[in-house]
Structure formats: C-alpha cells, structure tokens
C-alpha cells in the first residue's frame, strides 16, 4: 500500500480503466495537457481518439458524451469547474439522466461526469465555488463524493463500470490530501457508506472534504468526554440508509455537516429521512450545518463566514449537549 495524493488515486483509477476497457474514453476541456492533472500524460499512452479535448462547449460535450454512451462507448467527461454543469443542465438532467426511463429501458447511457474540483478553494468567488450536487440528486442521478484517496479510486472505478450516468464530485479541498491506496484496481460499490469513526453520543453525517474536519473535531472532543461517530455516505445517491439509521439509532443525536446550499440541499434530504425513519430514537432535533444560501463571496472573511467549518461544527455539537 502506498501513501498517495487523492488526485493521483483518481488519475490511477481512470488510467487503469482505460487500459482494461478500450471503450473508456475521456472527453473534456484541456484534458490533453490536463489542467487539473487527472489525465496528465494520458494522451501519449491512449492517443487523441481516447483523450479528446473539446472546445469550450459544455452543453455540447455533455450531449456528445450521451450519444457516445448510447452507441457503445463508456465516456468519462471531465468538468474542470463544477459550475460548468449549469451550461449542460438540459443535457445532464433532461437527456442523459432521463433517456433510459423514457425509452422504457431500451437506451443505456453509461457515462461518468468527473467534476474535477467542487466547492470553495478560496478566493474564487461565486462562480467557481459551488457544490451543485443537489441539483443532480434531485433528478435521480447517481452521485458520489469520495472523501479519501482510497474511496476516490474505488468509487470512480464503480462509477465508470456502472451502466448509468454517474456524477463524481471531487472536493477541491480533498485533491491535495494523501492516503493509503492499493496499487491494483479495486471497486467500492455505490450506495455503501462508511463509519469513518465509531462513537456513541452523536452522529455527524459528513460529506466530501468535511469528513476530514469531522474526524479532527471528533478527536478534539474526545477529551471533553463527547464521543462523536462520523458517518460518511460516500455515495449521495443511492444513499446508504441502513448504515445511517443504525448510527442514528445508536447515538440518538445527529448533525448533518454538508457543504452544499441549505435550502433543498443534501443535508435537508438527510434530515428529512432521519425524521421519517428514526423519529422515536432522537434525543434532540436533527441539526444541519451547511453553507449559507448566497453565492460564495470573494472576501476571505466573508467566505469563511458562509462556509461550514470546524468552529461551527463544534459549536453546534456543544449546543446539543
């Protein structure tokens, strides 16, 4: 097992899949020279037929991905910036995601959307800092957001091998983290969450880069006698409800710690499910810590004011005791 960067784990997963399966192609902007670093050097190995640079045409390239998937390829589309999916909205939610159902199961679109840097990286303001996965969850699109290099590799492989559109959000704040990752190709099934740390007093449902923060928080609070359980769904849809309910039933207290918008966000959905399924086990109301419903402001102090962070998490945990 090696200790490698998250970004490297992602790159390795994609590279290996392209080696294994000639139908896997990567399509996106700047994928030859690889602005994001995921496909660096791929062009030399796989050539321009399988490492396909597109013009700045996000809606068009998404449609191209769908057409390629419908006709026998297994494309992986890279979106450099998460907001680029807004251009492609019709092609994502009205085309790729609906075609199978609307064709009565005749069409199949095995396409992976690699959203290569999601969330606020600092100083990029309102159009480069979103976490727009709730829009896709709303449409029923399978969506994963790995929090560790290990999860990133295994989940990306599963996403590529899945026969439906799958959105893979890579949190920008996780790309530079390191972790143990096996060299060989492996899969982590979609829909399987993980208890990243066991605890007995409170469950923190955390996603993406916030998992690491939740784990640090859990460690810090250990000395104050609060035992925090950290649940990472890893896949946002399908959600591992069983594991979630098990954790909630054990602790009776839940905080959903998620960096998408508050209104109709992922945290809202998780809270609703818990109140429907685990109401009698709850010792206090489910709390959400999300970003504020505003575009991410440029100014650093304002930026951190609106984002979920450790300080806010600790405050809410302590308030619940």
């Amino acid at each position: 097992m090696r200790n490698i960067y998250y970004l490297k784990a992602v790159s390795e997963a994609l590279f290996n899949e392209m080696e294994i399966n000639p139908d896997v192609v990567v399509i996106g902007e700047d994928v030859r020279y690889s602005l994001r670093g995921i496909t660096k050097g791929f062009i030399d190995i796989f050539g321009p037929d399988r490492v396909i640079d597109t013009p700045i045409s996000e809606a068009g390239l998404t449609g191209v991905g769908t057409g390629a998937a419908l006709s026998g390829l297994r494309p992986v589309l890279e979106f450099q910036i998460c907001e680029f999916i807004f251009f492609a909205f019709d092609q994502l939610v009205d085309q790729a995601q609906k075609l199978r159902y609307m064709s009565g199961g005749k069409l199949k679109a095995p396409v992976t959307y690699l959203i290569a840097s999601s969330g606020a990286r600092g100083g990029m303001a309102g159009q480069h800092s979103d976490n727009p996965y709730p829009y896709l969850l709303h449409s029923g699109m399978k969506t994963v957001m790995p929090s560790t290099p290990y999860d990133a590799k295994g989940l990306l492989v599963s996403a590529i091998r899945d026969d439906d559109p799958v959105a893979v959000f890579l949190p920008v704040n996780s790309l530079g983290t390191k972790g143990d990752v096996p060299e060989e190709q492996y899969t982590i099934p979609l829909g399987k969450g993980e208890i990243k740390k066991e605890g007995k007093d409170i469950t923190v449902v955390s996603t993406g880069h916030l998992v690491k923060i939740a784990l640090e928080t859990a460690e810090e609070l250990e000395s104050s006698g609060i035992s925090v359980e950290v649940y990472d769904p890893r896949t946002l849809l399908p959600l591992d409800r069983e594991l979630l309910f098990k954790s909630v039933k054990k602790t009776g207290r839940v905080i959903v710690f998620d960096d998408s918008n508050r209104t109709c966000g992922f945290a809202a959905e998780v809270s609703a499910i818990i109140s429907e399924e685990c109401f009698t086990y709850l010792k206090s109301p489910v709390r959400r810590i999300t970003r504020a419903d505003v575009p991410i402001p440029f100014n650093a102090q304002m930026e951190s004011f609106v984002l979920p962070d450790k300080e806010k998490l600790i405050k809410v945990i302590l308030k619940n005791f």
């Binding site: 068009g60 449609g63 057409g67 390629a68 998937a69 085309q95």
Partner: peptide, 15 residues
C-alpha cells in the same frame, strides 16, 4: 437536444 447526441454517436463510429 438530439443534435449533440448524434455527434456523440458519430464519435463512437469514428473511434
């Protein structure tokens, strides 16, 4: 909406 999908299918044919 079908136009880029057609182009994607043509990409498959080429590849």
């Amino acid at each position: 909406a079908g136009v880029p999908i057609a182009v994607g299918a043509a990409l498959t044919i080429k590849i």
